[in-house]
Design a protein around this nucleic acid. Structure first.
Lengths: 262, 262
DNA sequence: GAGTGGTCTAGACCACACG
DNA sequence: GTGTGGTCTAGACCACTCC
């Protein structure tokens, strides 16, 4: 072990692991570490950057560096799909009460701020393949941002695509002014005679892009979960494709798979 | 925009986004960027480090920096659970042919190298809570590493816990020498009269720890997917808890949720 | 105003890749 | 051997936080 910055990082990692430095505790300042290890400032900063990229610490300009606290998780369970489907056949009064975001998070609608934007686009190759339609087919692109009223960053970024021809029979579905739609996408599809049979969710993870980090206000050393969801109707046809970007440290996806009995 | 390293990073990001620099292409060398922007080496290096942490580029000592290529994904679908359950009631000859890893990846058993280690541990608080048993209950901890024969890094890290009392009736289940067990965990449990009713999978994402990065040979700028799986028997009792760490850029988890008809 | 981290300069020397 | 990135020194000045 020759690398000085690794040694400094190791020592701090060990202090965090043993609990000598607990969540929220302040680390020694950079100049203290310089004195202690008799190295220079850039070397010490390299060590701290490493810990930051591992998600172990947060640096705060003018205040110091701190051991990161575990985040409170927002849970999204796949049982919400059946819940949403059941809700789509309720009366308007019943549907108006809640949305699936509230079902996911347990929050009241009043705590949330919601923004939707619609746009018409031509299907690029990858989306066309999922829909099993020709490239360039007309799609409705819908982007959603939902955030807590008390915070100014949304807690996820959603982009959803519908095939224009499948939904154009109801012009209301082409206008973002009707959002938030009581009863959600399942009810929207029901107004044009589409019933969903299953949801396929594809999950990967990666570091956030610069834009995502800014929009979700992610600290360095955070990963994002990417969910690509394909909704299929009773003919097995893909009718909605959506991509959801979620902060990996604040989100827990829960999937329950039932098994047949022996 | 005052920050010089952001400007340099932006320019390179843009070149990558537009395709001017395609996957696998070599970036300008650090000294070329120094000359071009009339800045110093550490500043240029800061810009490149940023792109690296975003997973956009790879740096190779002595060779240069390169635009990262997208990885080939290994797909793990939740339909493997039912597949595994069906397999557990087959004859030994049938079970011997394949394991669930092969089912997941489509690879032959001959392409894979498998290592298992068993250990007996006392349940810490968080595990005890999931099993709904007292803290300190005896558990069997099983760790697995599976890798391609051609590569030297495993493609995931698995730690599984069984309640010792539930499985002790069959001593073979306490001995790692019997791994890989033909028919997997579902068949192991069957030998002690346990039938699984459902699987709960909890997914989060974060940057890898230093150990995980080394063991999975992850490049900087990669995230890991964490899956915590709880297997419940027909009484709803948690009988296995496992944690699986997977490279986020090489793994795609697929969950299909069927919906009831209206 | 004092303390602390953020950005940047201007180098030196080392380690790895490749011809 | 030459080119390349990796580590490290020794500072300067700026920006943010808190008293």
């Amino acid at each position: 072990m020759a690398k000085v910055y690794e040694q400094i990082a190791d020592e701090l990692r060990e202090a965090i692991r043993t609990g000598e430095l607990g969540p929220g505790d302040k680390l020694p300042t950079e100049s203290e570490l310089v004195r202690k290890h008799r190295k220079t400032l850039p070397t010490v900063r390299q060590a701290l950057s490493l810990l930051q990229s591992e998600g172990l610490i947060e640096k705060h300009h003018g205040r110091g560096s701190f051991v990161r606290k575990p985040r409170k998780l927002v849970r999204r369970s796949n049982d919400r799909h059946q819940w949403e489907k059941n809700r789509a056949v309720q009366s308007e009064a019943e549907r108006a009460g809640t949305g699936s975001t509230e079902h996911d998070t347990g929050l009241e609608m009043d705590d949330l701020v919601f923004r939707a934007r619609y746009r018409e686009v031509k299907a690029p190759g990858d989306l066309a393949a999922v829909f099993d339609l020709p490239e360039g087919t007309d799609l409705v692109e819908r982007t959603y941002r939902t955030r807590y009223k008390a915070e100014d960053a949304p807690f996820n970024l959603v982009t959803s695509y519908l095939v224009r021809d499948y939904v154009a029979a109801n012009p209301d579905l082409l206008d973002a002014a009707n959002e938030p739609w009581p009863g959600g996408t399942m009810h929207q599809l029901r107004t044009v005679g589409i019933e969903l049979d299953r949801m396929e969710e594809h999950i990967t993870a990666r570091p956030p892009t610069a834009e995502e980090a800014e929009e979700l206000q992610l600290l360095p050393g955070t990963a994002v979960l990417i969910e690509r969801k394909v909704s299929r109707d009773t003919d097995g046809r893909a009718v909605e494709v959506s991509e959801i970007v979620m902060p990996g440290d604040r989100t827990e996806l829960v999937f329950t798979t039932p098994l047949e009995r022996w």
